[in-house]
Design a protein around this nucleic acid. Structure first.
Lengths: 185, 185
DNA sequence: TGTCCTGATGACATGTTGTGTCATCACTCT
DNA sequence: AGAGTGATGACACAACATGTCATCAGGACA
């Protein structure tokens, strides 16, 4: 047990989500978030580089996770199969059950372009991690593959969050991948 | 002839590019940019909502242009053909010749995550415009098509800027589209 | 038991970004 | 000539973000 209440980052995240949801992102200030978490403004900025970042605590590990996943994947896969294998694995492990929380978070993010911007940067960093993992395995066209994979994944995620029937995300992802094949020529 | 020197937005853009290039994005302040353009800080923020935006003056018209292009495209095209038709048209009209300017701008944008973020938002807004144009023409899977198109376009643009042989962007775009077909399964 | 070290936090100061508000002044329209 | 328009200047100010030093609980170790 440490001297301070533990998990300052998580407490700040929780306080921020509550305030953003109730009075809006732009209308809540960092001092307000810090106070609700029982901390000071300065401490907020020690854990998060800026006000937007507090909504993306979970995303911090994504690039590393995907990177490890791709490095450990079966060697026989095609490059595109490898990319989709990574997404399918992480999706089966980490996503189902979080749907409601993700919906709430998405509603906040959609309410402000600054948050949308940060979300796009996170997605782009994930794409970059995929690209590097592909290069490490000697694949060609890593940049294009990573971007296409991200496009399919992001679209699947949106469809999953919008679908009130709440199917498994893995199923939506595979369907989106198949849709893509039918569309392009 | 107006009372003030014309083209305040363009002058601010020019001043900003010069300062960003010489001393870096983070190290130049808005008052410095404004002074170099012969204007005040307050006037800078009248023309640009924030410091990042000054690098994206040209992007303002993109969504409208693509939108009009897709609305006026031949009706016989497949949805994917329509998306790529839009990119191919705009690319042939507006891009060749700007390569050096775009390379300089890209170097600045890559130097700072805040600028990269804004660039991603612009790309996303373009994608959204494509999606809406597709919906207006009654296409299915508009979101996925727009995202895939953007992925191909962004990748082609990067390859074009990196290729010292300076081929026509249209050619690079078509090659990227073809590469994509070979990759996915 | 006492001392030193460590690391998270608080306290304070400060620079930068972004906005609200009102005044100014050249130009235009009538 | 006088009223209206619209871009800009001037000023005030809130919020964001960072640098720096002080504080203080707990662990390591003699």
């Amino acid at each position: 047990m440490t001297r301070w209440a533990p998990d300052a980052p998580a407490r700040l995240e929780q306080a921020a989500i509550e305030l953003f949801a109730s009075r809006g992102y732009a209308a809540t200030t960092v001092p307000e978030i810090a106070e609700r978490a029982g901390l000071t403004t300065r401490t907020f900025f020690r854990h998060y580089t800026d006000k937007r970042e507090v909504l993306f605590l979970r995303e911090r590990d994504f690039p590393r996770i995907v990177s490890e996943l791709l490095a450990a994947a079966p060697p026989a896969l095609t490059p595109w199969g490898l990319v989709m294998h990574g997404f399918e694995t992480v999706v089966s492990r980490d996503f189902d059950g979080w749907r409601e929380g993700m919906r709430r978070r998405r509603a906040i993010i959609r309410s402000d372009p600054h948050l949308r911007e940060r979300e796009l940067l996170k997605s782009s960093m994930l794409s970059r991690a995929i690209e590097e993992a592909l290069v490490a395995r000697g694949a060609e066209d890593a940049e294009l593959l990573a971007r296409l994979g991200s496009a399919v994944f992001d679209t699947a995620l949106d469809a999953w969050l919008d679908d009130d029937a709440d199917p498994p995300l893995l199923q939506v992802l595979r369907a989106t991948r198949a849709r893509m094949l039918r569309l392009v020529d």
